[in-house]
Design a binder for these strands. Structure first.
Lengths: 355, 355
DNA sequence: TTGTACGCGTTATCAC
DNA sequence: GTGATAACGCGTACAA
């Protein structure tokens, strides 16, 4: 019956609406882009026509005409790691605020494929790019014809958002020191090179130890995303620490909650509970730190805020680019967010120094 | 020096290439879409021109001209839940195989916003849609002008990919039965209604219990994504079970590894290890099941396969739609994948029935 | 306030 | 094998 349901076939365009209402295409276009320039009556007429004809907007055509895609590209190393999936989550949620849509690629660590991802993204005229993978150097990213913001990676030549990892290391070491640990041990992975923001954790840890003249030690385990491999390498470390520092109060700062949890579990399985001479602090505030048998103290990154900042910086730079003709090569801005120390049972149990 | 680096401004188009080479736009287009129709010499000429001019393809224009966006929309309830982030991960990775790009929205459970997401997606001419959120009924999804595939949700009127939850329930119950548990207990959440695939877990559990005439019980805890709330409700359950069934061998099948882990931790914190009269099976094979103090036996979904199947079904239906003019209303296809029982320490420890 | 005419960059349809 | 020319659907000077 109704005029609706002209199932399948040609979609309704401005032309159709124009004919239907007697206006010109231009007026229809204006109805969407600056409705105020039409009389209220005419707005009403068009508005009705839209429902009568069941009009659906076509953003592709709009893009071709005005160049604005409202697309932001995202390259994330993986989504297994909670840190990345949560970051992506928060990035996607900025849609409500900014309206930008995201084209997401999961980077598989190969330079060439990642370059292809970027080409593909550019082919869709993305207006900005958020990079979390660390495959391509910022030197290269900076040459792209669009604004780029990186998150928690090498960022010399591009804008970025990072956690203050140094402060994280300081917080962790300080907390352990406050608990009168006699030996502070920091466990990190071999891939944490000085270029990466995460290296700050090591510096912070060391600085505090030296400043307070604390007995300390730095242990590197080989990087791996395979759980069993992490278990293996940490088992060796655990065995050694448990015997060598037997009797001493040990403060363990493990870079990464997954590894902190593994270490904790080794203790629990050996002793049935967390021994008094162990204190543990992880990093990231990932779910596992909260869900562990003994909830793990940890240094949390402000993921939601970081995501928001990243998009915010990008949006600003993208807007800029739309205005000024003589695009002044923008200085990269680097935003650094404080980590948040979260105290849980692996440090707050038992006695503590009276401040 | 070089002719490259015409920094900023107008991008190179087919027209430029045409002028540069002396061919027409059409020929340039053909070079990309059916190179065979050109002489090798001419291919070479154009190929060189492309690098000389540093041409970048513009997919937006191509879309407008031929209608194919190579976009697939995805609506996922959240990304906190590992199940969803991993599913998204696998979906994104099909890019390598099919070349489709994904526009992802995180559904916030509000019907109206979700409808807006879909409208926005349609405005970008997505060719297909994958739905994991369960806000909108399949009846409504089926009316969309594009193919839709749902994953693990109500799917009466649309194509879908699901795990065989019934078999999952059967596997879990059977495993616990094999361990001579004297009382089988299934803990599930109040939102698991019969329309949801996950309800099959309950049916499978019950059927096995009745078939084998096993003492059993079904316990519902209130649904919540807040960890502390889960802990609270499970603490109550734990207290009761631990006293009421004291002395009996208890087989606990918890729907969801996060909750299974909470239950396990309650045991460990009370007894220091997993008591012999407890056997636990979770569901989902999420990281926590592996990372728990005592690795938890669980029923795993074949996430990678499900993601692949979903995209695969979608691609097939999208291709279909491009060919046949008289688009015969496709019958929904429902693909069901077997779950995989993963035995870990929460069941495999201690004695077991000799087959 | 409203309309005309053209441009956006590619593909499709015919011709040659 | 190659080339004109008309779509594709919308935005935007410029005019009226």
């Amino acid at each position: 019956m109704g005029s609706t349901n002209n199932n399948k076939k040609k979609k309704v365009t401005f032309d159709d609406i124009a004919k239907y209402t007697g206006f010109s295409k231009t007026t229809i276009s204006r109805y969407f882009n600056s409705p105020d320039s039409l009389t209220l009556d005419n707005q009403e007429i068009i508005s009705n026509a839209l429902v009568d004809l069941d009009y659906k907007e076509n953003k592709v055509a709009r893009i071709l005409a005005n160049g604005k895609t409202e697309f932001i590209g995202v390259i994330v190393p993986n989504l297994q790691n909670h840190y990345y999936s949560e970051m992506l989550n928060r990035i996607l949620q900025t849609y409500g605020r900014y309206g930008y849509k995201f084209l997401v690629f999961v980077g598989n660590e190969q330079e060439e494929t990642e370059r292809q991802y970027i080409q593909e993204l550019l082919a869709y005229n993305i207006e900005g790019l958020i990079v979390m993978s660390f495959t391509l150097p910022s030197r290269e990213l900076a040459k792209l014809p669009i604004p780029v913001v990186t998150i928690e990676r090498e960022d010399r030549y591009v804008s970025s958002v990072n956690t203050d990892n140094y402060m994280g290391g300081v917080q962790a070491a300080s907390l352990l020191a406050r608990h009168n640990c006699e030996i502070l041990i920091h466990i990190n992975t071999t891939d944490t090179t000085p270029e990466r923001p995460a290296y700050g954790r090591i510096r912070g840890f060391l600085d505090i130890c030296e400043e307070k003249k604390l007995n300390h030690r730095l242990i590197y385990v080989s990087q791996s995303d395979i759980f069993e491999e992490m278990q293996e390498s940490l088992y060796t470390v655990f065995q050694e620490l448990d015997t060598v520092y037997s009797g001493m109060k040990k403060g363990i700062f493990v870079s990464g909650d997954t590894r902190a949890n593994i270490f904790l579990n080794l203790l629990i399985r050996k002793y049935g509970s967390l021994p008094d001479d162990y204190r543990i602090v992880g990093f990231d505030d990932s779910p596992i730190s909260r869900e562990a048998v003994i909830p793990i103290s940890t240094v949390g990154q402000q993921i939601e805020k970081m995501a928001y900042e990243a998009v915010s910086i990008l949006v600003e730079q993208m807007e800029d680019r739309k205005k000024r003709r003589p695009v002044l090569s923008q200085e990269p801005v680097h935003r650094v967010l404080a980590p948040i120390l979260i105290r849980r049972e692996t440090t707050e149990t038992g006695e503590e120094t009276k401040k």
